[in-house]
């Protein structure tokens, strides 16, 4: 029987998902030399997180669970290397979890890969395009992959590109002649073109100027409000997360260390003469402080998960 998306279910259920990556061993002579050196001076080379990485692999995501309700904008914050992109790749069928399960509107992303692919799309931090092709050619390609005819795809592409503020003359110029901000807008347009009901945005505004950021954020809001899309967004921009997200999870070293609304997260840390920002929350929960931020003096907090 053909599996079908159930729109009454949560847009996303991530259940105890773990992903490890094997790390290649260095050549034997390097290991031999390191071992010899270690015997001589008593020090050893340390592995990454996950202990002996060469033997057991790096734990990129360790037992993560979260639920995203239909129509939510759900943010994931975390330092570089915390596992955000790995998690998004698993949600978008590009990585298979080692343990646990990911459900999109009730369908397992591994067992019902094709059905899930039809209703999701993703925008990544690096706008992945055929760089010599124009925005229109790239969008036509993308739309056809989702079964749209050329005429329909062309009409919709021109409409969306226009709404994103791209000048008509840039529709046919190669992507590599466009600014990063423009490229990212085309990436958003490409995702929007396929009308996903779950949109995964992996740092979509990184490197954009404030105006471009604002336009992308407006578009994200419009997607949710007018097109009934659920959005999962990862970002390093705390202000953006605060403005856009209904709920936020903070990911550190592959684990969720807190999950709440932006206001709820701020309540988690002690106020010490000033209203905490999401950045303060991030710093405390990921165990890192900015230099010169001693006056903040955060307390350790009990966190979920």
């Amino acid at each position: 029987m053909k599996a079908a998306i159930d729109r009454n279910q949560d847009a996303l259920n991530v259940r105890n998902v773990t992903k490890r990556f094997k790390v290649s061993k260095p050549p034997f002579w390097t290991r031999w030399r390191a071992q010899k050196g270690a015997t001589g001076n008593g020090s050893t080379a340390s592995g990454g997180r996950g202990g002996d990485a060469g033997m057991q692999g790096v734990v990129a995501i360790g037992g993560v669970s979260l639920d995203v309700h239909r129509g939510e904008i759900y943010g994931i914050l975390g330092p570089n290397g915390s596992g955000k992109s790995t998690l998004v790749r698993m949600l978008s069928t590009l990585l298979i979890p080692d343990e646990g399960q990911v459900l999109v509107f009730g369908l397992d992303v591994v067992r019902h890969e094709m059905e899930v692919k039809r209703v999701i799309n993703r925008v990544s931090v690096d706008a992945a395009f055929f760089k010599k092709l124009s925005p229109l050619e790239n969008l036509l390609y993308g739309a056809r992959l989702y079964g749209m005819t050329g005429g329909e795809a062309r009409r919709k592409s021109i409409d969306i590109l226009g709404r994103l503020g791209l000048e008509a003359r840039s529709y046919t110029q190669p992507m590599d002649e466009m600014s990063r901000g423009m490229q990212q807008k085309v990436a958003i347009a490409r995702a929007f073109l396929t009308q996903p009901i779950l949109l995964l945005l992996d740092e979509p505004t990184t490197g954009l100027d404030p105006r471009s950021k604002y336009e992308v954020q407006e578009f994200v809001n419009e997607l949710r409000d007018c097109h009934d899309a659920t959005i999962l967004i990862t970002t390093h921009d705390m202000g953006e997360a605060d403005r856009l997200c209904d709920r936020i999870a903070i990911l550190d070293e592959g684990r969720i260390v807190a999950e709440d609304t932006p206001a709820g997260l701020k309540r988690l840390i002690r106020r010490n003469g000033h209203e905490p920002t999401l950045e303060d929350v991030f710093m405390q929960l990921t165990g890192k402080k900015l230099s010169g931020a001693e006056e903040f003096d955060p307390e350790p907090v009990e966190v979920a998960n």
Binding site: L94, K117, R122, A128, F130
Partner: peptide, 14 residues
Amino acid sequence: WEGTIEYTLMAPVH
């Protein structure tokens, strides 16, 4: 080389 592999492989195409 173009960086589009993930995009193409996550499209609903057999």
